[in-house]
Amino acid sequence: MDFWEFSCMSLGAAFVVYYGLKLILFGRMLLPNFFFPLPKSFFSSMGEWAVVTGASEGIGRAYAFALAERGLNVVIISRTKEKLDKVAQKISDTTDQKVKVLVADFTKDNAINSIEDELKGMNIGVLVNNVAMLVSTLPEKFLASPNLDQMITKIINCNVKTMAKMCKVILPGMVDRGSGVIINISSGAAAIPFPLYTLYSASKIFVERVSQGLQVEYKDRGIIIQAVAPYSVSTQMNFYQPTSTFVLSPEDFVSSSLQYLRVGDRIYGSLIHTMMVRHRVMSVCTLPRGMLFSDSMQKNLQEYVRIQNQNGSHKTQALQ
């Protein structure tokens, strides 16, 4: 056997092993309760309280309910007290768990200071960093944003700084106890460069890299730190698209994502969203970069989102 034959055989064997392992892992995801089981008392064993940012609606609200249903008291944080109070009342009525409401505007520079004071001495077992914002409801180029300087600061404060600082506040207690879970919500928009959502998608890359780095640093202390990157979920940010095979309700998405808590440091939260990314099903990842980044594609995206925004606005008014 000459050098080239050996090299080709080695490369082929490596290819088979690599994709074989990926296939095995994906097969395990079909049965998460069997391959990645969590005891019924898993979350309550982490601590007494869960903290959820951006909890007044959507994915954050669904996490708050799900964690309360799993035996945790919850601290819910957002900037609209009226919405938080309604969520708190419903959680209390349906789960009998304690709920603490904290009001904070995470776009402000010092939003974490008052939160840190309120959380001192609490036995916090789970943190969900969910709060985030878009530059604009409609996709637009970087320089098109009005008050761009202020918007850059708001995006960094809300999407980037808040996640890192909440970890800084809560992680030490988890390290001392030797247990805890931190779930940082990323986005499918972080999978590739995403023109017209440039700042948002870049901020979600930060979320993923910090999560993965922290997991390496603290996994030996009994702490799970995971980035969760959803694709389409029917929320206000997604204009309340009708649920379907590919568009999940916040409740279904959160229920699914918690089943995959032990899969790894970065997940897509559901089997269908994993298939969309890894197996290129109904995903923008399937498109050639030249097509994806073309002017016509960007204009089509703007028009599509404009129509979805109008439909979502009508739906919100009808619900009110």
Rank of each mutant, 00 (worst) to 15 (best):
81 K>Y: 13
56 S>L: 06
280 R>H: 12
183 I>K: 08
58 G>P: 01
230 P>K: 05
150 Q>G: 12
288 P>S: 14
252 D>A: 13
314 H>V: 09
16 V>F: 04
16 V>Y: 03
211 S>H: 05
14 A>K: 07
27 G>N: 15
123 N>L: 08
122 M>G: 03
57 E>P: 00
25 L>F: 11
316 T>H: 07
113 N>T: 13
52 V>F: 00
21 L>T: 15
45 S>P: 12
143 L>M: 11
289 R>N: 08
90 K>A: 07
165 K>T: 06
46 M>H: 06
230 P>R: 02
185 I>D: 03
155 I>Y: 00
160 V>H: 02
202 A>W: 03
313 S>K: 14
289 R>A: 12
279 H>V: 05
79 R>A: 09
171 L>H: 00
287 L>A: 09
80 T>P: 06
37 P>C: 07
53 T>N: 13
231 Y>G: 14
257 S>L: 01
17 V>H: 10
287 L>S: 06
167 C>F: 08
154 K>N: 03
67 L>F: 06
10 S>I: 15
296 S>N: 13
255 S>F: 14
60 G>T: 00
145 S>C: 11
235 T>Y: 08
144 A>T: 15
171 L>C: 02
281 V>D: 05
227 A>I: 03
273 H>G: 06
174 M>N: 01
17 V>Q: 04
318 A>V: 06
162 T>P: 02
